[in-house]
Every structure is written in C-alpha cells, then in structure tokens.
Simulated assay, not measured.
Amino acid sequence: MERDAWRTSSRSGNNGQCVEVRDRRVQVDVRDSTVPDAGMLTFAPAAWDAFVDTIKGNARRP
C-alpha cells in the first residue's frame, strides 16, 4: 500500500459505498469515501492488521 495516500478498499462494490484507507506508518486512517470530510477512524497499525486478519479469516468460513 502506498503510504500517506488514500486508497479504496478492494472489497468495496460498485454501488458507491466505499471505504478508503490511508497508511501513515504510525496510524491507519479509515473513512467513508462518499463523505470524506465527515471524519475518519484511526487505528494503531497492529490493531488494523489484527482487524484485517480477522475479517479475512471470517470471510473464508462457510
């Protein structure tokens, strides 16, 4: 992931409801792309990685 640049989640659909992520090394920011000025959630990198790993693991379950 390119650092400091917002990117759209690869799991976002084409329905206009997208999540954007920005890795700033010391924190990971997450926002709604439809209202980017509404604010963002900020995570420690380890917490974000744990969240993503959990989601990926749950997505593979039947």
Rank of each mutant, 00 (worst) to 15 (best):
M1W: 12
E2T: 14
E2N: 14
E2Y: 11
R3D: 05
R3S: 13
R3M: 07
D4W: 12
D4S: 07
D4A: 09
D4Y: 15
D4K: 09
A5H: 10
A5K: 10
W6F: 06
R7C: 05
R7W: 08
T8L: 12
T8Q: 12
S9E: 05
S9R: 05
S10V: 05
R11F: 15
R11P: 00
S12I: 03
S12W: 09
S12G: 06
S12D: 01
S12N: 03
S12E: 01
G13I: 06
G13Q: 10
G13E: 04
G13Y: 06
G13A: 10
G13F: 04
N14H: 13
N14A: 15
N15F: 02
N15W: 03
N15Y: 03
G16C: 04
G16L: 07
Q17C: 07
Q17P: 00
Q17V: 12
Q17I: 06
Q17W: 08
V19C: 07
V19Q: 02
V19R: 05
E20M: 01
E20Q: 10
E20A: 02
E20L: 00
E20C: 01
V21S: 02
R22E: 00
D23S: 04
D23Q: 02
R24Y: 04
R24T: 07
R24D: 12
R25C: 02
R25P: 02
R25I: 09
V26W: 08
V26E: 14
V26Y: 11
Q27L: 11
Q27R: 15
V28K: 04
V28D: 07
D29H: 09
D29L: 04
D29R: 00
D29Y: 01
V30I: 13
V30Q: 03
V30F: 08
V30H: 09
R31L: 08
R31K: 11
D32A: 06
D32G: 09
D32V: 08
D32T: 08
D32L: 07
S33I: 00
V35P: 00
V35W: 07
P36N: 10
D37M: 12
A38H: 11
A38D: 13
A38Y: 11
A38M: 04
G39N: 10
G39R: 09
M40W: 11
L41K: 05
T42D: 00
T42V: 11
A44R: 12
A44S: 04
A46V: 08
A47C: 05
A47L: 06
W48G: 01
D49F: 00
D49C: 03
D49V: 02
A50I: 01
A50P: 04
A50N: 04
A50H: 05
F51Q: 04
F51T: 01
F51S: 03
V52F: 00
D53R: 06
D53W: 05
D53N: 11
T54I: 05
T54C: 10
T54L: 11
T54D: 13
I55P: 00
K56Q: 14
N58T: 12
N58I: 09
N58H: 15
N58M: 13
A59W: 08
A59Q: 14
R60H: 13
R60S: 14
R60N: 14
R60E: 13
R61H: 13
P62G: 14
P62R: 13
